[in-house]
């Protein structure tokens, strides 16, 4: 069992946990994730390791409430325990000194991006960060990202914070004014796809962190498969980071919708049960 030691509400839909998982805390590197399962009835869901504290054996994860399992997680408190936390899984980010890097995060993807930013800064890069979200309250980890960024650009759809518009607009502005050696985009599939288009047009290589449906997370089922450079890759063991211009985006985005009816059924049943139990 894995105990939750701290629970913080970051926004209306985003929650942060610190969890005691000493083996993961000792090994996790930027870009890696865990699979967790709440209890015996639960499903296995992947979440990025946002930060670790090896001394206390804890890891920090951030999730967005989008369905049954994450809604159930939201109702857990400090002191509650999770049945399983497995990891660290996936390949770590290629951290090295590239020169000047541009990193772009959207929504809850910022939680995945943050350890990458930190790693890149510590490796001596000049880090330009763009964070985007629908509205002000959804731009999480602002201060932490600022701490490891040489420049921080904020973008919201409604203009409630920073520039009004899309992260791709901000990217274009950066590419127009200076030379970037390597870029990252982490967020919703559609955002990563458009970021890839912009970077590719500017001839800047870009890494994306894919978040397909996963079961085991250890390469034994192929549920998370994606075509990269026309070859079948398993995101859980070959990724989750890939070069954006090599990803078959249509296929990737389609496969995300595979279980929509079942996901809605489960979420609705859960909400009805919560209403019955708690009014």
């Amino acid at each position: 069992m894995y105990k939750i030691t701290e629970r913080t509400v970051l926004s209306e839909r985003e929650i942060e946990f610190w969890i005691i998982a000493p083996r993961v805390a000792a090994k996790a590197q930027p870009g890696q994730f865990v699979i967790l399962q709440v209890d015996q009835f639960g499903e296995r869901i992947p979440l990025t390791v946002c930060e670790t504290d090896e001394a206390s054996g804890q890891i920090r994860v951030i999730f967005q409430v989008i369905g049954k399992s994450t809604a159930e997680l939201k109702h857990l408190n400090a002191g509650d325990e999770l049945q399983d936390v497995v990891g660290p899984l996936g390949k770590p980010t290629e951290i090295k000194n590239y020169g000047t890097v541009l990193v772009v995060g959207g929504g809850v993807g910022i939680a995945v991006l943050y350890p990458v930013i930190r790693g890149l800064k510590q490796a001596g890069n000049h880090v330009i960060t763009i964070l985007g979200a629908k509205t002000k309250d959804l731009v999480i980890l602002r201060e932490e990202c600022a701490m490891y960024s040489d420049e921080l650009i904020l973008v919201t759809d409604d203009g409630s914070l920073g520039q009004k518009g899309l992260v791709t607009d901000a990217m274009k502005a950066v590419f127009a004014r200076e030379e970037i050696n390597q870029a990252w985009a982490i967020g919703p599939g559609i955002m990563m796809r458009y970021c890839t288009d912009v970077a590719t047009k500017a001839e800047v290589p870009i890494y994306v962190s894919l978040n397909p449906i996963m079961i085991d997370g250890t390469g034994m089922c192929g549920c998370c498969r994606v075509l990269v450079n026309d070859q079948i890759k398993f995101a859980c063991v070959d990724g989750p980071e890939f070069l954006g211009d090599q990803v078959d985006w249509d296929g990737f985005i389609q496969r995300m919708h595979q279980y929509h009816p079942e996901e809605e059924e489960a979420y609705q049943a859960y909400q009805e049960k919560q209403v019955q139990l708690n009014g």
């Binding site: 009835f41 399992s69 079961i215 089922c221 296929g251 496969r255």
Partner: peptide, 27 residues
């Protein structure tokens, strides 16, 4: 990579390990 194409490993893991045949009692 179309939706609906599975490896037997995924199909059977969902059913056996994760109790997919008892959805939505199991998630």
């Amino acid at each position: 990579n179309l939706n609906g194409v599975y490896s037997s490993s995924e199909y059977l893991t969902r059913i056996n390990l994760m109790h997919g045949y008892e959805f939505p009692k199991y998630d």
